[in-house]
Design a protein around this nucleic acid. Structure first.
Lengths: 156, 156
DNA sequence: CTCGACTTATTGTACGCGCAACGACCGGCG
DNA sequence: CGCCGGTCGTTGCGCGTACAATAAGTCGAG
């Protein structure tokens, strides 16, 4: 009676590819976040905000665009920006071409923090991730990501 | 004066491999979570709890072990288990060999939910992820994950 | 047998995030 | 010009999670 639809499961090969990514991602993100927090009192998302701002021309970005790039909801970014502003790592700036909008601008202090944190972060990415990959594998991974989600290449 | 240490940045190839994973992971997890939530009112973490329980012998697991497998803190799992128990998808069971411990046990209703959700979830994983990968690539990915984080292969 | 260091699960608390709603503002069309 | 659908950033609210502290229990050394 209750013989429900049994979905055909994944093959071991598929499982390895899929769950491996989940594990690796979660583990690495946790580790990188912890390192950043410990050495610079910065969360990974805060770091990414500074990163994108620092690499933008003028060191500023519209809130909406910034939210998109760091994969945060607009409300989430509003709150995060509040904290970063409180810590004087960014400032807000009105947008004169559109009175609704505002820019987030990285401060000098923010740039200093970014440079320091970047060293830690990049070191972590290399230790935990890149060091295990040959150049060919890196290329292949990049191709794979691009195929799965077109436009997955971006700034540092 | 303020000539700080400029960390040497990542190469484009490294960037593609690294940030690609971040984007793909976040996007896919969001999508899968939304599908599960919409079609079965189940979060991805809840699903994973049911999954691991359903695939364990006796349909039960110690809270501590379960927390480890779903990558949740023990307190996080306690709360999640509360919710799942409220929805009658799992039950708690005392452990007679160790009076401190308790088991989480999947219920019949939980198994039904799992079977249904599993169809949705596996379909999603195939559509969003596996369909873009050849068998060779799946193998290569699996190898890569295993090298980065030994022991990244597990149940469905 | 008893003590003490460790483990297990739970609880208090705080935080980060998303969703929905809001006010302010934009731009195009009648 | 005036309106109206859409957008931008912010806010109220609720949820899910981690960290620290706690109570109960385990196990081995003396």
């Amino acid at each position: 009676m209750t013989e429900s639809i049994l979905p055909t499961l994944l093959t071991p090969r598929e499982l390895r590819a899929w769950r491996g990514m989940l594990r690796v991602h979660q583990t690495l993100v946790r580790a990188l976040d912890a390192e950043l927090e410990r050495e610079h009192g910065l969360s990974l998302t805060s770091y990414e905000v500074l990163l994108f701002l620092g690499d933008s021309e003028g060191g500023r970005l519209r809130m909406h665009d910034l939210a998109t790039q760091v994969l945060l909801s607009r409300s989430g970014l509003t709150r995060l920006a509040d904290r970063l502003e409180r810590d004087r790592l960014i400032e807000r700036q009105a947008c004169d071409s559109d009175a609704r909008g505002s820019f987030a601008v990285i401060t000098g202090e923010g740039r200093g923090k970014l440079a320091a944190a970047r060293a830690t972060h990049l070191d972590g990415v290399r230790r935990h991730f890149l060091s295990h990959l040959s150049r060919q594998e890196q290329d292949m991974l990049g191709d794979t990501w691009e195929r799965i989600l077109p436009g997955s290449a971006q700034s540092s």
